[in-house]
Design a binder for these strands. Structure first.
Length: 907
DNA sequence: TTGAGCCAGAGACCTTTGTATCGA
DNA sequence: CTCGATACTTTGGTCTCTGGCTCA
């Protein structure tokens, strides 16, 4: 990945200025405009602008003051400056934002997984038979024979066999080192700082749109070793030339070709999720120093040349030095790293830092060869002429290698399964390496990844290796720094103990800077006696607290007590803490004579099931206390926890605790009560449904009538009378269920979808059962009088929506109405198969005549004078709520003369 | 160059038993 | 009259972690 980034950076140098401005715009999140000065700026100026604009969380300093660099402003430049300075100082103190933290973490994880997937895939390619064949064809025969002759039948003595295996391997490595030419111009998989990745991503996004794209890809392929298939590998194998990564990969393939089990091992170079401090902040100061640029411009060239020369001339030298066992790190120490520098700088810097990855430095890919005679894995790095059984110091890069960090090391075997072998290679696994990984609170992310790549079954050699790896973790020396002790899995210092932790027993196992080092295993977690009770445990009598801490006053009550104590001049209230082994299981007092023992609050503590008193039963149902009370059974409400509101702890009551003998009685009564409640609820809902439908239909009728009043300049009351008569007559005789439902549904939808002003148009388009009538009549005929049944007889088993705007089966409503009519022994004759009755004049009779006892009838207000006012009011509400009309049609619902006058006067 | 130590900011975590009012 | 639902208020203090910064 990093190498790809490099390529993009290389390309970026040549981007014309105009395009540079596009980038600038693209990179600025705050919609600011770019002044023309940016256009006139030199390349270096451009670079400087870029680096200070918007890398989130990237530390900046006041030396980046806008005088020279920032070209972005809207109106008030000084204000802009001030704002930026503020945010700079703020962000410097505050560190990265939560969003950036999350982004960093996600980037780290995704990158790590992607690199592992890449290694897994590459490992698979290394099994290619043709590749094996080609590599064997290059290898002189006697090397092959050296391995193939190592059979137990040929050499019975395992020690001798082991020795010969080692020798064969050494010779093979020698041959490889001489034969394979490592091309250091080809990039390898090193890590990249987060800020650089962000920059690269932005560049890439920009390039995707620009014309430079093709060129970018070209350059990528020039500098980056693109392996598309086995064939690419075969090609490299025949050339015996490639990157250092390729060397390790092909060597692994060669071992496999020789029938020697070999693993492809990789140190996963994921982008770090932490902000890299210090190194990140210091160079920034120098970046804006104008004297820095010419200097850099020179040194860039020089350093690059040096590197090339070194590469040409120095390869053998390095190699020889390593054969002699000399380290040649010194002259390859990376220069001051400027994480925040712009593209050209970072490019140059990285070019330099690729020297991090010279022959002397630890690789990112290497090989593990399984020695059958020894039954163990041997670490092999042919480039550095290295064969080891323990390779801690050889593979874990020194901290000065900024772009090679050992955090995860994964080894892939021939069968494609991987294994986490980090403990074998990390110099300070527990002290440092583990801490570089994302912290695992609830679940260990890395564990889940490892489980996904691991072999689902185990081989004998796995056990041996696991034991070795486990041992490696504990054979690690004691940390050499204070930080190292923090969160160390084996050691602990008293200063790092948490508030509720104590070392017990305090066995001293060493000293660090005068402080006693204790084993982490002896650290105990303490709790107050109250907290132990929440766990269902009580402190045994006479136990001495292992620690005392200041009491926390969270609730108002506690606070008051503390304040009172402070006023009285008493000492601070301390809380005693106890260890688990100072507690025992809480045993609640048993139930005696059906009486449940309660605490001082009159309820039963039941934080865990084990706290249930003997002979008692817990009935965790809401509302069951009422039943128990009715039955006269002694009970206590069960407190299962607390919730905190307004600085108060409120007990969470879940049901009751009763004598176990009463359990069934209470439960039966509770069931009965519940079904009663359900029925009540159902009835209530039904009522609501009818009410809503009533409102809707009435509202629609009124609307329709209103439309007619307004539409034609006629005597409105006459029209309506006639129309409704006709409609009622005609429609019910032509009722077609499907169409009716559809119509109603459509009205409902139309009402929802259209504002008041457009509703009339919409209704004109509604389908009608026959061309001459409107829907109003139909609906009215069916629904004008809807009985609401308070008795239990007419229950609907369907789930009727209680809100306007949801479709409902009209059939059901009709049926319901029908039943009501029949049960009322009225002369409303059902029209055959339960289809709607025709009711014309009868519907205008006072409702009291029609309604059965226990049945409420909601009617239109075209009724007796006495009922008129009430009905009128109700209809007004219905209209308003159903149609959202508030003013102009308030009095439209009646058909008496005075009402007509009202309307006409309104208009 | 590295790490200790301090500081600041931010987030996690701990805490662990009311009352007045209104409406059904 | 009783019972249940709801509003009230709005929030703290400490610990822990992270990162900046200085200094040895």
């Amino acid at each position: 990945m990093s190498s790809e980034d490099d390529d993009f950076e290389m390309e970026e140098v040549e981007v014309p200025k105009a395009s540079g401005n596009d980038v600038l715009v693209d990179r600025i999140p705050t919609n600011n405009t770019v002044t023309s000065s940016a256009n006139n700026a030199t390349d270096d100026d451009d670079d400087e602008q870029w680096e200070e604009v918007d890398l989130p969380g990237q530390p900046t300093t006041s030396t980046q003051a806008p005088e020279t660099g920032i070209q972005i402003t809207i109106t008030d430049k000084s204000a802009e400056k001030g704002r930026e300075k503020d945010s700079e100082t703020k962000s410097r103190r505050a560190g990265p934002s939560p969003e950036e933290r999350a982004a960093r973490l996600a980037s780290h994880k995704i990158h790590a997984v992607a690199l592992i997937a890449n290694a897994k895939h590459r490992n698979k390619l290394l099994n290619d038979e043709l590749l094996h064949a080609r590599m064997l064809s290059l290898l002189p025969l006697h090397y092959q024979l050296a391995f193939s002759s190592l059979t137990p039948s040929n050499i019975p003595d395992p020690i001798e066999r082991s020795r010969k295996f080692d020798n064969a391997l050494k010779r093979l490595i020698d041959w490889w080192r001489i034969s394979f030419e490592v091309d250091y111009n080809l990039k390898t998989l090193l890590t990249t700082p987060f800020a650089d990745v962000q920059e690269d991503l932005k560049k890439k996004r920009y390039k995707g749109k620009g014309k430079e794209r093709d060129k970018g890809e070209m350059e990528t392929s020039n500098n980056y070793e693109v392996i598309r298939s086995e064939k690419s590998l075969q090609k490299r194998a025949l050339q015996m030339r490639g990157s250092r990564d390729m060397s390790a990969q092909l060597f692994t393939a060669l071992c496999r070709a020789l029938n020697v089990p070999a693993r492809l091992v990789t140190s996963v170079q994921a982008v770090p999720y932490r902000v890299q401090s210090q190194t990140a902040s210091k160079p920034v100061i120098s970046i804006d120093d104008s004297s820095d640029d010419p200097d850099n411009g020179l040194s860039k060239k020089e350093k690059f040349m040096t590197w090339q020369q070194r590469q040409k001339s120095g390869f053998k030298g390095d190699d020889d030095a390593f054969i002699r066992g000399e380290a040649v790190v010194a002259n390859k120490a990376p220069p001051q790293i400027k994480l925040t520098s712009h593209y050209r700088k970072s490019n140059k810097r990285r070019t330099n830092n690729s020297s991090d990855f010279s022959t002397s430095s630890p690789p990112v890919f290497w090989t593990e060869v399984f020695s059958r005679p020894d039954c163990r894995w041997i670490v092999v790095d042919p480039i550095r002429n290295m064969i080891r059984t323990k390779a801690r110091n050889m593979m874990d890069p020194q901290s000065l290698y900024k772009y090679n960090k050992m955090t995860y090391v994964v080894a892939f075997e021939e069968d494609g399964y991987g294994k986490d072998v980090t403990p074998r290679y990390a110099k300070q696994f527990a002290t440092r390496t583990v801490k570089q990984r994302p912290p695992s609170k609830n679940f260990d992310w890395w564990d889940t990844i490892v489980r996904k790549i691991e072999r689902p079954y185990r081989l004998a050699r796995d056990d041996t290796e696991d034991a070795e790896l486990h041992q490696a973790q504990f054979s690690e020396p004691m940390p050499q720094s204070m930080q190292g002790f923090k969160d160390h899995p084996v050691y602990v210092l008293e200063r790092h103990l948490k508030r509720e932790e104590v070392v017990n027993p305090p066995r001293e196992i060493g000293r660090f800077k005068g402080e006693i080092v204790y084993p982490r295993a002896n650290v105990q977690l303490l709790k107050t006696s109250e907290n132990w009770l929440r766990q269902g445990r009580v402190v045994v009598e006479g136990a001495q607290p292992l620690k005392r801490v200041k009491q926390r006053a969270v609730t108002i009550n506690k606070r008051r007590v503390q304040e009172a104590a402070a006023l009285a001049g008493e000492e601070e209230i301390m809380q005693a803490l106890y260890a688990r082994n100072q507690t025992e299981l809480y045993k609640a007092p048993p139930v005696v004579n059906g009486m449940v023992p309660k605490n001082k609050f009159g309820n039963v503590d039941l934080y865990v099931p084990s706290m249930l008193p003997e002979g008692a039963a817990h009935l965790p149902h809401k509302g069951i206390a009422k039943i128990a009370k009715k039955l006269g059974v002694d009970y206590g409400e069960a407190v299962t926890g607390f919730e905190f509101r307004q600085r108060r702890a409120n007990p969470v009551i879940s049901g009751i605790v009763v004598d176990a003998s009463h359990k069934d009685t209470i439960l039966d009564a509770f069931d009965e009560w519940q079904s009663e409640q359900a029925e009540k609820e159902h009835d209530k809902q039904l009522k609501e449904v009818y009410k809503q439908w009533q409102k809707l239909v009435q509202g629609l009728r009124i609307r329709e009538r209103l439309k007619e009043y307004r539409g034609a300049d006629q005597q409105p009351h006459e029209r309506i009378e006639e129309d409704s008569e006709n409609q009622l007559q005609g429609d019910s005789s032509h009722y077609q269920p499907g169409i009716y439902e559809q119509s109603l549904d459509t009205i409902t939808k139309a009402k929802k979808a259209l504002p008041y002003s457009r509703l009339n148009e919409a209704q004109d388009e509604l389908p009608t059962p026959n061309g001459s009538t409107t829907n109003e009549g139909i609906i009215d005929a069916n629904l004008e009088e809807v009985p609401i049944d308070d008795t239990d007889e007419n229950k609907m088993d369907i789930n009727v929506p209680a809100k306007i705007g949801q479709p409902v089966s009209l059939d059901v409503l009709i049926e319901q109405q029908e039943q009501a009519k029949q049960s009322s022994s009225n002369i409303r004759v059902a029209n055959g198969e339960g289809y709607p009755t025709r009711h014309s004049k009868r519907a205008r009779e006072p409702s009291s005549d029609v309604a059965t006892p226990g049945t409420k009838r909601v009617t239109r207000s075209r009724i007796s004078n006495s009922a008129r006012d009430a009905a009128r009011k109700e209809n007004e509400e219905a209209v308003k709520s159903a149609l959202g009309i508030t003013d102009e049609i308030e009095d439209d619902d009646d058909e008496e003369e005075d009402e007509v006058v009202d309307i006409s006067s309104d208009e």
